[in-house]
Write a protein that binds this DNA or RNA. Structure first.
Lengths: 214, 214
DNA sequence: AGACTAAACGGACTATGGTCCGTTTATTAT
DNA sequence: ATAATAAACGGACCATAGTCCGTTTAGTCT
């Protein structure tokens, strides 16, 4: 198996796949850069708290943090990159739970139970961080290149195989994770008023059918 | 059942749900408006043929069609709206085939076969019109408000019920149609080099499992 | 024909993400 | 301490979607 984990995350005691890969730790961060990073992250959180995700524009962020606009883009690459960075901590926690945490989400439970729990957890996550997740999705290079997405996919794929899935596990994992697409989930919850528990039920039904019909 | 069809499409002999709803036919279109609509549509097609979808900017389109920019937005509402209009004909044809055409896509075949055929057809459609479909997806109000999307969903839902599906057919239909998300399909085909037939196989497998596991 | 009106027009203007490149600065080597 | 250098900085600049509103015009009514 490919080495998916690596050490050095400052955000979580446990190793994790960053939502947004930091630059190689080879060269230490310069002190002014570190200071500006802190300023920017703080300003971003304040801005979101005050004006919501939509109120965070790159110009305003730069102004509020007292840095130039170029600095913002140098640091985060894009608006989506910034959002990804803001989600990094909670994403790391999520990863820790489904990879190393207690069952049924973590190892120790049957694959099907873990799949179900994974979906439930992901649904809760998306509902909780709604706008942030949405804003992070518009990465220039598509939402499929986010490293963490590859990890979720792989996780689902592994669980499918563990359950003896005999089809095309990689594509099936992709189809399943499409059902957890944040834009869809939030559209259902917000525009159609679907309660998250109903989404969880439908997810359980879906994975059960996919796994059972062997 | 809700009345989903209505008469009056100029694009297809058979009634269809427009990708982009035209203004109510109550007030006839003024002659200058009609002339400019033609010019714009023609210019848009030329522009796309010459420079690809990405090369079509609203400014350039306006200039090429010899109209003001305001006119372009008055007509199509947004860039995505324009793309939707450009896809209207092929979408109508697609709808006609799965609603009234010959089996297995059209009525007359078992629900499961129709579901399979629907996915295959949709995959082919997305692969064929790739960039256009992608550009049409960025509608300001999310890709779930496109009227045609509601029709696809409903179609899948009806077929599920026909097969005696005993879960939550509406949500399950949504999960299934998420598997046909154009961005995902095109990412698989273009970035990962997955042949469309493999996508079709996986779709067939998915719907079969969902329907069978009753 | 002439006036009237609602619709259509057009292009300047705004908002915003993202880029460029000349300038400044933290760090390191001597 | 000084010089050298790679990195970081900053803000003017660009591209593009979308808005606004004063002006023009097609169609209609008398």
């Amino acid at each position: 198996m490919v080495r998916l984990l690596f050490p050095g995350s400052k955000l979580n005691p446990v190793t994790s796949i960053p939502l947004r890969p930091e630059p190689a730790p080879a060269a230490a961060e310069r002190s002014d850069a570190a200071r500006n990073r802190e300023r920017l992250l703080l300003a971003a959180k304040e801005l979101i708290a005050d004006c919501g995700t939509a109120g965070l524009t790159m110009d305003r962020l730069a102004e509020r943090a007292g840095v130039g606009k170029g600095t913002v883009f140098r640091r985060f690459g894009s608006r989506a990159g910034l959002m990804l960075t803001l989600l990094n901590d909670s994403e790391a926690a999520f990863q820790a739970r489904f990879m190393f945490g207690p069952p049924p989400l973590g190892p120790g439970a049957p694959g099907l139970d873990r799949l179900t729990a994974f979906g439930a957890e992901r649904i809760a996550y998306v509902v909780e961080f709604g706008d942030l997740v949405l804003a992070a999705e518009n990465a220039s290079r598509g939402r499929f290149e986010v490293p963490a997405a590859a990890l979720w996919l792989r996780h689902i794929e592994v669980l499918l195989r563990e359950e003896g899935f005999d089809g095309d596990p990689w594509l099936m994992a992709g189809s399943l994770s499409a059902a957890l697409d944040p834009e869809r989930l939030l559209d259902l919850v917000r525009r159609h008023g679907v309660p998250p528990e109903r989404l969880v039920d439908s997810w359980r039904d879906l994975v059960t059918r996919v796994v059972r019909a062997a």
